[in-house]
């Protein structure tokens, strides 16, 4: 225990640099996946056959390829086509795209859960498609979607560790590097695990609160 504490004090500053990158990747890809996911979801419910089908195909493609392979593709293959990204950019874009598929299906489920009578009521006061979405469906779908959205946030935080495979020195990779050079596997990886947990706990609390909130909203 004594040993662990002294190791912790020694390694914490280096690991904190990893934490910083982990947070940046998570936030960046969360924003990107949310925007893309909402866009895919709106295509899916647009009622226009071509948009619906092509988006469904795209989503299945994204879901069907492992995140790690998508990251490799963006970071190692795209340069062959003249698109060179930094490892951090590639990680954010890769994770953002990979998760947009799950976000999209989550958002779509929320949108489709809204009673059709709501849409008819909105249409009957002269609302067009965008206004129905903006004023009636999305605000109500928002509440339904929040709890699963919180879960996606937690998963993204942990999956940001996959960025280590394309050389982003986030928390997991920093840990691995320290462990490899000091052989203090136990101390280092215990710290890494605890630090991930510390970042997840507030998110878990948030999800719990959101679920409680949406339960009281339901009538």
């Amino acid at each position: 225990m004594q040993q662990f504490l002294s190791d912790a004090v020694e390694f914490l500053p280096i690991l904190m640099q990893g934490v910083k990158l982990t947070v940046i990747i998570t936030l960046g890809s969360l924003v990107l996946s949310t925007i893309l996911g909402l866009f895919w979801a709106l295509m899916r419910v647009s009622g226009i056959w071509v948009l619906d089908r092509s988006t469904r195909l795209l989503i299945n493609f994204i879901r069907g390829v492992p995140i790690i392979v998508q990251l490799f593709y963006i970071y190692f293959v795209m340069p062959d086509f003249g698109v060179t990204l930094t490892a951090l950019q590639a990680a954010i874009i890769g994770l953002g795209i990979a998760y947009s598929a799950y976000q999209a299906e989550n958002f779509r489920a929320g949108i489709e859960a809204i009673d059709h009578g709501q849409i008819e009521a909105a249409q009957s006061i002269g609302m067009g498609w965008f206004l129905v979405m903006r004023r009636v469906i999305l605000p109500q779908a928002f509440r339904i979607v929040l709890p699963p959205y919180g879960n996606v946030m937690i998963m993204m935080l942990k999956d940001s560790s996959q960025a280590s495979t394309i050389t982003v020195a986030e928390l997991a990779l920093q840990g691995k590097l320290i462990a490899a050079s000091t052989f203090k596997n136990t101390s280092v990886f215990t710290m890494v695990a605890l630090m991930y947990l510390c970042m997840c706990l507030p998110l878990m609390y948030l999800v719990g609160q959101l679920e409680k909130h949406s339960a009281t909203q339901r009538r």
Partner: peptide, 20 residues
């Protein structure tokens, strides 16, 4: 149709008020 709906309102069997 959007314009026509704005001129001909509708009241539904199940009210369909916006609950939020």
């Amino acid at each position: 149709i959007v314009d026509i709906r704005a001129r001909v309102s509708m009241v539904f069997q199940r009210f369909n008020l916006f609950p939020n």
